[in-house]
Design a protein around this nucleic acid. Structure first.
Lengths: 183, 183
DNA sequence: TGCAAAGTATACATGTCGGTCTACCTAGAT
DNA sequence: ATCTAGGTAGACCGACATGTATACTTTGCA
């Protein structure tokens, strides 16, 4: 049971977009790496943007599931929140780590790329609500604000970790998250 | 006294790079907007990368100075830190706000763009040290870590504010910064 | 066996990119 | 008056981008 052309395209595009950013990956590179004919791309997707939608949607789902797995293994909401930051630290140790693919994607889009912009927004909203649910389970007085604060720490730490090429920002953010959650 | 071609190029490029991102702005657009001949660009700069270095260096200095102005007007270190987040909120209200130009720049670079990558790293280090100096003046027990935490909040809040098109993430981050600084 | 769906291979159209070349034109200082 | 530094105008180049057209091959199934 080999993978179909569409499946190979989506996963290959996801990997390349993650590593290099949307506008630094061309059609030619994608089909070469996916070992697929040029026309197979355009028979399965209407355009590069369509392929990008599929690739980033898959990335978004994978990230959500990784967070769910990390929280499910934790013994309580507070431990779950810390586990999410531990997940970030693990991701940042990968040699091909380039920060948050969705923040990076937003940096490549223009006013006309409404569908991809919306995908980024929905992705971040989803992560934020995951934090919000956890702090609500803890009985935090303002779960919406605390959810926003944890998301900012997460996003900022991942961006800084990429720029510094060091996981120290993520460990610091984890510590800040613990303090905010305890208060 | 009209501006020289080099000055017009640098400021125009800075504005366009900020608004659209490095790889979405072409030479042709820059020289058109700067009202400068094509050859004037290459007489003053060796390449687009050189112009980008000048433009982003100017942006970095401007941002550092804006932060210094905000902290100088504050009556103490804690107020200075909060003033930096108020500055972020003000910046995010501009119609052309697109998040942090340096995080965005990093998202456009490849392994070969060493000079611009270094510029991003130095810029973030500078901001981090500004936070670090302020918390050290407050007598914080671990100023390096707290400086990293404030930077993560700042960067994450600015990114999220751009994605959500709302300043709520910045106000939440300001509140988190206050709590961390007090503890 | 035969047919339809999926995939392949490749040439091509069209546009934009960063960058170079040549020739010309000032404005100001000596 | 002339020379020079800085600026201008526009044709041009090679490389690469997304996307299309056409004709051929494979594969699974009825």
């Amino acid at each position: 049971m080999t993978l179909s052309a569409a499946e190979r395209l989506t996963s290959t595009a996801a990997r390349l977009f993650q590593e290099k950013g949307l506008s630094r990956v061309g059609i030619n590179e994608i089909i070469r790496e996916a070992d697929v004919a040029r026309m197979s791309l355009y028979n399965n997707f209407q355009s590069k943007e369509d392929l990008a939608m599929a690739a980033y949607a898959a990335m978004s789902q994978a990230r959500r599931e990784a967070i769910n797995a990390a929280t499910a293994a934790a013994k309580g909401p507070k431990e779950a929140i810390l586990a999410i930051f531990d997940l970030a630290e693990r991701l940042a140790q990968a040699p091909s780590f380039t920060g948050c693919s969705f923040i990076n994607l937003a940096a490549h889009l223009g006013d006309d790329d409404e569908r991809l912009t919306d995908l980024v927004r929905r992705h971040k909203l989803g992560i934020r609500l995951q934090f919000e649910d956890l702090v609500r389970a803890l009985g935090a007085p303002d779960p919406v604000m605390l959810g926003r604060q944890l998301l900012a720490l997460w996003d900022g730490a991942i961006a800084d970790s990429f720029i510094e090429n060091d996981t120290a920002p993520i460990r610091a953010a984890r510590d800040a998250a613990a303090k905010l959650v305890e208060a």
